[in-house]
Each structure stands twice: as C-alpha cells, then as structure tokens.
Amino acid sequence: MATPSPLAQPIAPDRPGGPPDGPDGTGGRERTGPSGRTSRLHIGWHSISRAGLRRVTVTPSTGAGLLLGKDRQQSPVPLRLFAPEPIRVALVGGVWAAQLLIFRAFSLGARAIVVTSEPQAWSGFGERATGQYNRLTVLSSDQGGFPGGTAQTPTLTVYDLGMIGPATAPPLGPWHTQLTILRQLDRPGVAALQEAQLVLLQRLGGDEATLASATLRLRPQSGQFLQFMADDMVALIADGTERHLFLHQTGVEQQYVGLPRR
C-alpha cells in the first residue's frame, strides 16, 4: 500500500454526547458487524474515515526486479531480470560479474542452470551461495529442454562458453531468462549482443570497446569510457539507453563471490 499510515492506528468513532464506555469499551452498546448482527469478537475492528480510505492505493506489480547498482549520481538502478515474457541478457566480462548477478537473482527465488566450458569455475558456487544443492545446476554441454519458470521461481539459463553464445537460440518461456557470458568480445560474440534485450559490459580492451560501440551504436565518448571503468563498474545498455553504474557489492557478496575483477 502506498500510504499505510491511515491504518497504523485504529480511529475511534465519534460519539458526541454518548454514554461513557462500559467495561468492554463499547459504551454500553453491543458492537455489530457489517451484517447488522452482533459480533462476539471485538479483536481486529478498526475504523477509517472516507478521506483516509481514498488515500489507500495498491501499486501494481511490474515483475520481479533486483537492484543492480547505483549510477554516478547515486540513483538506484533496478534491473528487471525476470518477466512474464522471456528475456535475453548478454554480459561481456568475467565469471565474477556473472556470479554476482546470479547471487542477487537467488534472492528472487531463481534457479540457475549453467552450461559452461569451464565447470571448475562454478564448482560449489550454488551450494555456498544458497546452502542448497538444487538451486544451481552446472552442465558441460547444452542438453536443451530446460524447465520453465514461474513468477515465484523464475529460471535463469547461463551460457559460459568463452567467446561465443549458444549455437542455436533455445526457446524460452515466461519467467525464463537467458544470460550469455562473453569472456572476451570478438566477432563470434557479436550475435549474442544483437539478440540481447539487456547488455552488461565490464571494462573493455581497446578492440573490444571499438566492436561493442559499433555493434550497440554507442556514442564515441562511451567507447573511450568503457576502457577506463573501475573494477566494480558495469555499463548497462537497454532500450537504446546507456548507463554506467557501480555495483556496490556488499560484505556478504564479497564473502561468497569475491572481490571485483574481470
């Protein structure tokens, strides 16, 4: 509720000139429910004025989201990682940034499936991060047919195949997001950037920045800045807009994911 304060305290009904309260606090009268019949229980009854009732609103849900970080003006930057429609995300960077994103996705109830050419980099991560053995599955080959997600338990399929994405774009259903990690950006990874609705970039080398700028149609000064971002920064490109933000890793995240790095 947008304005819960009207309900914070029960408001006693006005009784001008009425009799004093009896032992039960009813003023000597029996309290009645909405049907007009006598109510045996008085617990939980509250009154609210019509003006207060008009101020009570319900904010509609816009889908599961997580706080990705803060921009250079210290404004929070949310990321809608899961939605009723499928989402494809591309990350040019290292396992650290991917695991930080997955760690935060776990707080939304997500389950992750990682298809990787480097399984040792993911060994034990799911168990350490969640204390459970079924929240993250590591596969060394793309077996396809991954289970779909729900609003309560969305699915995150992660492809960590070096410099390329999956050979074929697997079908995704509702509440199912695909994250493609490109350890280094080169021509073979361009298709993954073009197919993604959300692109995350860690600090890039000169050739990577040139290719990313051309593929994503970034401003010339953006390509320069991408080469000098701090370890705990990413660029977020979505809907034709670009934002540079600090990930603001917590102490708990440092414990389970490690210090910022590419």
Rank of each mutant, 00 (worst) to 15 (best):
L139N: 04
S107A: 15
V89K: 11
A191Q: 12
P10M: 07
G131S: 03
Q120T: 10
T62P: 05
A209W: 04
G162R: 04
L218Q: 02
T38A: 14
R37C: 00
D186H: 08
M229L: 14
F246W: 14
I164R: 15
T155C: 09
T168W: 07
P154G: 07
G126S: 02
R262M: 05
A112S: 11
Q194Y: 08
Q9E: 14
T153W: 12
W96C: 02
V115N: 02
A12F: 07
A90L: 01
T241E: 15
S49P: 08
A121S: 13
T137P: 01
P260K: 13
P4F: 07
G93K: 02
P20F: 04
F125K: 00
K70Q: 12
V114Q: 03
S222Y: 02
A209R: 06
Q202L: 01
A110Q: 01
Q254C: 12
D239M: 08
I43K: 15
Q143G: 06
S35F: 09
T210R: 15
Q152I: 09
G144S: 06
R54K: 13
T250G: 06
S123V: 10
R72K: 13
G52K: 06
P20I: 04
R50A: 15
G173H: 07
W45S: 10
R243G: 00
I237R: 03
W122S: 01
L200D: 00
I181M: 12
V234W: 01
R80M: 06
